[in-house]
Amino acid sequence: MSGQRVAIVTGASRGIGRAVAVRLAASGTAVVVGYAGRAEAAARVVDEITAAGGTAVAAQADVGDEHAVAATFDLAEKTYGGVDVVVNAAGLMVLSPIAELDLDDLDRMYRTNIRGTFVVAREAARRLRDGGSVVTFSTSVVALQFPTYAGYVAGKSAVEGITMILARELRGRQITVNAVAPGPTATDLFLDGKDEATIERLAKQPPLERLGQPDDIAGVVDFLTGPQGHWVNGQVIRANGGIA
């Protein structure tokens, strides 16, 4: 596998993470398809990649569990020789007004969205090969400030802070660290619990007048982790069709 780039993509069993894994594999990158609980879905992603001539293996890990995340990096190093790209697409979103938010849900979001980002970033900082890339995931709602998103936005604001600091801490290693902040994107995470009128209203908000698609976001990640995007570092890319 000498010379082949290797990527770990968390949250890769569905949605944006799946699209990122497939896109990176199509670019010739060996991909570790990280998943929390959807083993069959992750296996289908691996099958899709290999059927198209790519290289992939699945790895189960709760991103908030530092031992499971370390084991995912171990698998990548044992199977492919190292890690060049880390994309942390795992996320959890529970929507509720602040006055009604169940604090257990807040804790669950904290574990996945803040602790999980920190755990993955810490392991990447320790083990990523020089010249590599890290991409975290924020949300454009940090700027849009939609009601009911407070718990989610609190975590994603922390993600942006972690990302900016990591970019500066990795000085001298030629590693880029950026956050992608999608707007409304047609994934299960976004669509669950929304009626058609709400979805239609959100789709009309950007000047491009549609929801984002997972492939739209995967293209941004492919750019940021490839040689053509290597001058972009320490940035939050708001990929949202111009909504804000």
Rank of each mutant, 00 (worst) to 15 (best):
113 N>K: 13
47 D>V: 08
76 A>D: 12
100 E>R: 11
112 T>I: 09
97 P>S: 09
84 D>A: 07
77 E>Q: 12
73 F>M: 02
91 G>T: 04
45 V>Q: 09
83 V>K: 03
39 A>I: 07
38 R>E: 07
61 A>T: 09
52 A>R: 10
102 D>S: 04
107 D>R: 14
86 V>T: 07
48 E>P: 04
39 A>T: 12
38 R>I: 00
66 E>M: 09
54 G>H: 10
40 E>W: 09
106 L>Y: 14
35 Y>W: 10
71 A>E: 05
110 Y>S: 00
75 L>K: 08
61 A>M: 12
105 D>W: 02
71 A>C: 00
68 A>C: 01
106 L>A: 15
40 E>A: 15
72 T>C: 02
75 L>P: 08
109 M>I: 06
70 A>W: 09
82 G>L: 10
59 A>H: 13
81 G>A: 11
72 T>G: 02
65 D>E: 03
46 V>I: 04
69 V>H: 05
86 V>P: 05
107 D>Y: 09
93 M>G: 03
35 Y>M: 04
83 V>L: 05
35 Y>H: 13
68 A>G: 02
104 D>E: 13
41 A>P: 10
78 K>I: 06
46 V>E: 06
71 A>F: 03
87 V>D: 02
64 G>S: 15
44 R>Q: 15
86 V>K: 03
87 V>I: 11
109 M>E: 07
44 R>I: 04
78 K>S: 15
57 V>D: 01
100 E>W: 00
57 V>R: 06
113 N>V: 14
68 A>Y: 01
78 K>F: 05
86 V>A: 11
58 A>M: 02
80 Y>R: 07
112 T>M: 02
45 V>S: 09
80 Y>I: 05
66 E>N: 14
83 V>P: 04
55 T>Y: 00
55 T>W: 06
46 V>M: 02
109 M>N: 03
96 S>C: 01
45 V>D: 09
54 G>V: 03
104 D>C: 05
40 E>F: 09
